[in-house]
Lab assay of single mutants.
Amino acid sequence: MDETGKELVLALYDYQEKSPREVTMKKGDILTLLNSTNKDSWKVEVKITVNGKTYERQGFVPAAYVKKL
């Protein structure tokens, strides 16, 4: 869990989004878990840094590609 009590997951593999509802992640990324009720895909939040500014983006990733921490 992070400092706000949200559950975290670790990306086990790289994943490139295939639709606007998904998010891209790299192996080793730590993501905030938002919903894990679907056995196939979990909703997560990723933090992306562009030019020194951090943005948050929500979307789905394959459940088999992440592990709860």
Rank of each mutant, 00 (worst) to 15 (best):
Lys27Arg: 10
Thr4Gln: 13
Ala64Phe: 08
Asn38Gln: 09
Asp29His: 04
Ile30Leu: 08
Val61Gly: 01
Lys6Gly: 11
Arg57Gly: 03
Lys68Phe: 08
Gly5Trp: 10
Gly5Asp: 13
Lys67Cys: 15
Asn38Val: 05
Tyr65Lys: 07
Ala63Tyr: 03
Glu45Phe: 06
Asp14Arg: 00
Lys67Gly: 07
Thr54Val: 13
Glu7Met: 11
Val66Cys: 11
Val9Phe: 03
Leu69Tyr: 07
Asp14Pro: 04
Leu8Val: 07
Val9Gln: 01
Tyr13Leu: 09
Lys43Pro: 01
Gly5His: 12
Asp29Ile: 05
Trp42Val: 05
Lys26Pro: 02
Lys18His: 07
Tyr13Ile: 08
Lys27Gln: 08
Tyr55His: 09
Glu56Met: 15
Phe60Glu: 04
Lys18Thr: 11
Asn38Gly: 09
Pro20Ser: 11
Leu12Trp: 03
Gly28Asn: 06
Tyr55Asn: 05
Tyr65Arg: 04
Lys47Tyr: 09
Glu45Pro: 00
Glu17Asp: 03
Lys43Gly: 03
Asn35Cys: 13
Met25Glu: 01
Trp42Lys: 00
Ala11Pro: 01
Lys68Ile: 12
Leu69Gln: 04
Thr4Trp: 12
Ala63Pro: 07
Gly28Lys: 02
Val9Met: 03
Thr32Cys: 11
Gln16Met: 13
Val23Leu: 11
Gln58Cys: 09
Trp42Ile: 02
Lys53Ser: 10
Thr4Lys: 12
Leu33Ile: 03
Gln16Phe: 13
Ala11His: 03
Ala64Gln: 11
Thr24Arg: 05
Ile30Lys: 03
Tyr65Glu: 02
Thr32Arg: 14
Glu56Ala: 15
Arg57Cys: 09
Val46Gln: 12
Lys53Tyr: 12
Trp42Tyr: 05
Asp29Tyr: 05
Lys67Gln: 12
Gly5Ser: 13
Ser36Phe: 05
Asp40Met: 10
Tyr13Asp: 07
Gly52Asp: 06
Gln58Ser: 11
Tyr15Asn: 01
Thr37Gly: 09
Trp42Glu: 00
Val46Asn: 04
Leu31Gln: 01
Ser36Ile: 05
Tyr55Glu: 10
Asp14Trp: 05
Val50Cys: 12
Asn51Met: 09
Asp14Gly: 04
Ile48Lys: 07
Thr49Arg: 09
Pro62Arg: 04
Gly5Ala: 14
Tyr13Thr: 08
Val61Pro: 01
Lys26Val: 08
Ala63Arg: 08
Gly5Met: 11
Gly59Arg: 00
Asp40Val: 11
Ser41Tyr: 15
Asp40Thr: 10
Glu56Gly: 13
Leu31Asp: 01
Glu56Gln: 14
Arg57Leu: 07
Thr24Gly: 08
Glu56His: 15
Val9Ser: 00
Ile48Asn: 05
Asn35Met: 07
Thr37His: 11
Val61Lys: 03
Ala63Met: 02
Thr24Trp: 04
Thr32Pro: 10
Leu33Phe: 01
Glu56Val: 15
Leu34Cys: 07
Glu3Ser: 14
Glu17Phe: 06
Glu22Ala: 06
Lys43Val: 13
Thr32Met: 10
Thr49Ala: 07
Glu22Gln: 06
Lys67Asp: 06
Thr4Tyr: 13
Val61Met: 02
Leu31Tyr: 07
Asn38Arg: 09
Thr37Val: 08
Lys39Gly: 09
Tyr55Thr: 11
Met1His: 14
Arg57Gln: 06
Glu45Lys: 12
Asn38Thr: 06
Ile48Trp: 12
Lys53Cys: 13
Pro62Phe: 09
Asp29Ser: 05
Asp29Ala: 06
Glu7Lys: 10
Asp40Lys: 12
Lys27Val: 06
Gly5Pro: 14
Gly59Lys: 00
Phe60Ile: 04
Glu17Tyr: 03
Asp2Ala: 15
Thr49Gly: 03
Tyr13His: 10
Glu56Leu: 15
Val44Cys: 05
Leu34Tyr: 02
Glu22Thr: 04
Arg21Leu: 14
Lys53Pro: 01
Pro20Glu: 13
Ala11Met: 03
Asn51Glu: 11
Gly5Cys: 15
Ala64Pro: 06
Ala11Ser: 04
Val44Ile: 06
Tyr65Ala: 12
Ser36Leu: 04
Asn51Gln: 09
Glu3Pro: 14
Glu3Arg: 11
Asp2Val: 14
Thr24Pro: 07
Lys68Tyr: 09
Asp29Gly: 01
Asp14Glu: 04
Leu34Lys: 03
Asp14Ser: 06
Val46His: 08
Glu17Lys: 12
Glu45Trp: 06
Asp40Ile: 12
Phe60Gln: 03
Lys67Thr: 12
Lys53Met: 13
Ala63Gln: 03
Lys26Ile: 07
Leu33Trp: 02
Met1Gln: 13
Gln58Asp: 04
Lys68Cys: 10
Glu22Cys: 09
Pro62Thr: 05
Tyr65Leu: 13
Lys43Trp: 15
Glu3Trp: 13
Asn38Ile: 05
Ala11Val: 10
Leu8Pro: 03
Ala64Met: 11
Gln16Trp: 11
Asn51Phe: 07
Val9Asp: 00
Asp14Leu: 05
Arg21Thr: 14
Asn35Trp: 05
Thr54Met: 09
Asp29Met: 12
Lys6Thr: 11
Lys47Gln: 11
Lys67Trp: 06
Arg21His: 15
Val23Ala: 03
Leu10Trp: 06
Gly52Glu: 05
Trp42Met: 01
Gly52Trp: 04
Lys47Pro: 04
Pro20Arg: 07
Thr54Ile: 12
Ala11Tyr: 03
Tyr55Gln: 09
Ser19Tyr: 08
Asn38Pro: 03
Glu17Ser: 15
Met25Lys: 01
Leu31Gly: 03
Val23Cys: 07
Thr24Lys: 03
Glu45Arg: 10
Ile30Asn: 01
Val44Glu: 00
Asp14Val: 04
Lys68Glu: 05
Glu17Ala: 15
Trp42Ala: 00
Val46Cys: 10
Glu7Ile: 15
Ile30Glu: 00
Lys43Ile: 14
Met1Tyr: 12
Gly52Arg: 02
Ile48Ala: 06
Leu69Ala: 04
Asn51Ile: 04
Lys18Ala: 10
Leu34Arg: 01
Ser41Met: 15
Ala64Asn: 11
Asp29Pro: 00
Leu12Thr: 04
Gln58Pro: 02
Gly5Glu: 13
Tyr55Leu: 09
Lys53Glu: 12
Ala63Cys: 08
Leu34Phe: 03
Lys68Leu: 14
Asp14Phe: 06
Thr32Phe: 09
Lys18Gly: 08
Tyr55Ala: 07
Ile48Gln: 07
Val61Asn: 02
Glu7Cys: 15
Asp29Gln: 13
Pro62Trp: 07
Thr49Lys: 09
Tyr65Pro: 02
Lys39Leu: 08
Tyr15Val: 00
Leu34Ala: 01
Val50Met: 10
Tyr65Val: 07
Thr32Asn: 07
Gly52Met: 05
Gly52Thr: 03
Gly52Ala: 04
Met1Thr: 13
Ser36Asp: 15
Thr37Cys: 14
Leu31Cys: 07
Val23Arg: 00
Glu22Asp: 07
Tyr13Gln: 13
Ala63Ile: 04
Tyr13Arg: 15
Trp42Cys: 06
Thr32Ala: 08
Lys26Gly: 03
Lys68Ala: 07
Lys53Gln: 13
Ser41Glu: 15
Ser19Met: 06
Lys67Glu: 12
Arg57Met: 08
Ile48His: 09
Thr54Tyr: 09
Lys43Arg: 09
Val23Tyr: 02
Glu7Val: 14
Thr49Asn: 10
Leu10His: 03
Thr54Pro: 07
Thr24Glu: 01
Gly59Ala: 03
Asp2Ile: 14
Thr32Lys: 13
Glu17Arg: 14
Met1Ala: 13
Leu8Met: 10
Leu10Ile: 15
Lys6Pro: 13
Lys18Glu: 09
Ser41Cys: 15
Val66Pro: 02
Met25Cys: 07
Glu17Leu: 06
Ile30Pro: 00
Thr32Tyr: 10
Gly28Glu: 02
Gln16Arg: 11
Met1Ser: 13
Tyr15Lys: 00
Gly28Phe: 04
Val9Lys: 00
Thr49Glu: 10
Ala11Phe: 03
Tyr55Asp: 04
Lys26Asp: 01
Lys27Asp: 02
Ala64Ile: 11
Thr49Trp: 10
Lys68Met: 10
Thr37Trp: 07
Glu45Met: 15
Thr49Gln: 10
Met1Cys: 15
Asn51Pro: 02
Ser19Ala: 08
Tyr65Cys: 15
Leu31Glu: 01
Val44Ala: 00
Tyr65Asn: 05
Asn51Trp: 06
Asn35Thr: 06
Pro62Met: 04
Tyr15Asp: 00
Ala63Asp: 03
Gln16Tyr: 14
Tyr55Val: 12
Arg21Phe: 14
Tyr15Ile: 01
Glu3Asp: 13
Gly5Asn: 12
Pro62Tyr: 04
Pro62Asn: 05
Asn38Tyr: 08
Asn35Ala: 08
Glu22Val: 03
Lys53His: 12
Thr54Trp: 08
Asp2Phe: 13
Phe60Trp: 15
Gly5Thr: 13
Pro62Leu: 05
Lys18Arg: 13
Lys68Val: 12
Lys47Thr: 13
Glu22Phe: 05
Thr24Val: 02
Pro20Gln: 09
Tyr55Gly: 04
Val66Ser: 00
Thr37Lys: 09
Ser19Glu: 09
Val23Asp: 02
Leu12Pro: 01
Asn51Leu: 08
Leu10Tyr: 10
Gly28Val: 03
Val50Phe: 10
Glu45His: 07
Leu12Gly: 00
Glu56Ser: 15
Val50Gln: 10
Ala64Tyr: 08
Arg57Trp: 06
Pro20Tyr: 08
Tyr55Pro: 00
Tyr15Pro: 01
Gln58Arg: 10
Thr24Gln: 04
Ser19His: 11
Leu12Lys: 03
Leu34His: 02
Glu45Thr: 10
Glu17Met: 11
Ala63Ser: 14
Lys43Met: 15
Thr32Val: 15
Gln16Ala: 11
Lys6Gln: 10
Tyr15Trp: 06
Arg57Lys: 12
Arg57His: 06
Asn35Ile: 06
Thr54Glu: 09
Lys26Gln: 08
Phe60Thr: 05
Thr54Ala: 08
Lys39Asn: 11
Asn38Leu: 09
Val46Ala: 09
Val9Asn: 00
Val23Ile: 14
Leu31Val: 05
Leu33Tyr: 01
Leu69Met: 09
Tyr13Gly: 04
Ser19Val: 05
Pro20Asp: 12
Ala63Trp: 03
Leu10Ser: 04
Ser19Pro: 04
